[in-house]
Design a protein around this nucleic acid. Structure first.
Lengths: 118, 118
DNA sequence: GTTACTACTAACCTTTTGTATACTACTAAT
DNA sequence: ATTAGTAGTATACAAAAGGTTAGTAGTAAC
């Protein structure tokens, strides 16, 4: 049994701004999932697409661009034949560990709850 | 300096599923923000709309319905004139505390980082 | 009598997101 | 010669999400 975080109007406004800021860069259906896929290992384009089930090449391509722009991902091109491109998480992406862990834990718990309700 | 969470292919797949489950019910632009607004206090419709800046009545209405369906929010109707409707977080919504806190902390940190880079 | 507040909802429109298919260009295997 | 793999982009279209405006019906203030 967990106590409710006491929240004043001030704190509430601050939270709203902060959470808005966070969702602005990591919100959406795919960004966090791509980051999770990359946490396993540096990955190449098609590997990521196979790991993140359901994402199309077009959407993955644009998500990777945004993640690169926001400093979560580094793009490494190996100029061989065939050209191989690797995507690597930056150190800044590691700052998302708490967010990803809490979200994973909550998702796991929620799935259990739904299962037990059936 | 924080160590990178070691992630195996198995753990990665589990995380992807769990995070997918979480985003399915609390993903999108508004749901978490509505919950944050309600953490301050039970709120009436127009109060929530004023607190969560930028949300339209139409969208707030549908978000509240989904939040109610998923067990995060209780709708309480006071049959007076005028009819007053209050929205209250359920105990289940409290299980999101870790997610909300980590997201708020990360958002705050991120905003500071952007500020210092300007 | 006009405006504002209560809590929405319907209709319509725009924007965002996603899907499907085809295509580049090169290598290697069958 | 055909197929598969490398990493995408172009095009066209469909679906989902979100925004805008107007309106309901009742009360109370100005």
């Amino acid at each position: 049994m967990q106590l409710k975080t006491p929240v004043t109007a001030q704190e509430c406004k601050g939270s709203l701004t902060a959470i808005g800021d966070a969702l602005y860069v990591i919100g959406g259906k795919w960004k966090l999932r791509v980051i999770v896929a990359l946490r396993e290992d540096n990955k190449r384009f098609n590997e990521i697409q196979r790991t993140v089930e359901g994402i199309s090449a077009r959407v993955l391509s644009s998500e990777l661009k945004e993640l690169e722009m926001n400093g979560f991902v580094k793009r490494i091109v190996h100029t061989q034949t065939p050209v191989v491109v690797e995507y690597e998480l930056t150190h800044y992406a590691d700052t998302l560990d708490d967010v990803l862990d809490s979200l994973r834990d909550w998702g796991t718990m929620h799935r259990e709850k739904l299962k037990s309700e059936r």
